[in-house]
């Protein structure tokens, strides 16, 4: 029991590495604040392209979405950060992360938006257009709000997944929470820093998961 506590819940070590872990936590929060909007906006763009009336826009967009949904995000990130320099494109870790997440997250969010838009009855658009609203206005004020509301649980679930995927940034040495915790673990030869990181992820994500469950319940009932 003592071994277990000193290996996983060593308070002395936890206090010692707290500043490093906290810095990593802030970096992860920063990544979330950047990447979630990138994904949400990129997804909206992906959906608009994939539902375009012109097949010359639609087909490449659908192909790209399918591609990035089936391409492992870790491979994508390493390719962009470590592979592209061979083609003369050298990116900072943050830029590489942003691009990789834009391509990956936009594809997933885009599909969710599309399901949402398809869930809005055709009569809603007709009602809007019949009052003289243009196509873009109808989309913005009538279709999109209803679409988002109908797929809010899915959008939030995908956001939870996206936040968990920020741990991938550790493999290209971006100083986020997992990277800091793993660094602390290797410096202290102790697992307690990883437990701290896990606890912080839980604190961030568990409320979101609860909210999703309540929303699903509400929308179903």
């Amino acid at each position: 029991m003592d071994v277990f506590l000193s290996e996983f819940f060593n308070v002395d070590i936890m206090v010692k590495v707290a500043p490093l872990i906290f810095k990593g936590f802030l970096q992860t929060l920063l990544l979330c604040v950047i990447l979630v909007p990138i994904g949400l906006c990129g997804g909206l763009g992906a959906m608009l392209l994939a539902t375009s009336r012109s097949r010359f826009v639609r087909w490449p967009a659908v192909a790209a979405i399918d591609f990035f949904r089936s391409f492992p995000p870790l491979v994508l990130l390493i390719f962009i950060y470590s592979g592209l320099p061979f083609a003369g494109i050298r990116l900072s870790p943050l830029a590489a992360i942003c691009i990789a997440f834009l391509l990956n997250a936009a594809s997933y969010y885009g599909e969710i938006y599309r399901a949402g838009v398809e869930s809005v009855p055709r009569g809603q658009v007709e009602a809007g257009r019949s009052t003289g609203l243009g196509a873009a206005q109808t989309f913005l004020y009538i279709t999109l709000p209803q679409a988002v509301r109908n797929v809010l649980p899915e959008l939030l679930s995908n956001t939870v997944e996206l936040i968990k995927l920020t741990t991938l940034a550790s493999v290209i040495s971006a100083p986020e929470l997992l990277h800091s915790a793993d660094l602390a673990r290797s410096l202290t030869y102790n697992t307690s820093p990883l437990i701290m990181a896990a606890a912080l992820y839980l604190i961030m994500l568990w409320p979101l998961v609860r909210i999703i469950r309540r929303l699903e319940h509400k929308l179903a009932g």
Binding site: G123, A127, T131, I142
Partner: peptide
Amino acid sequence: GMVFQSFNLY
């Protein structure tokens, strides 16, 4: 003005 069978209120 257009009024629909199924109302189509937002």
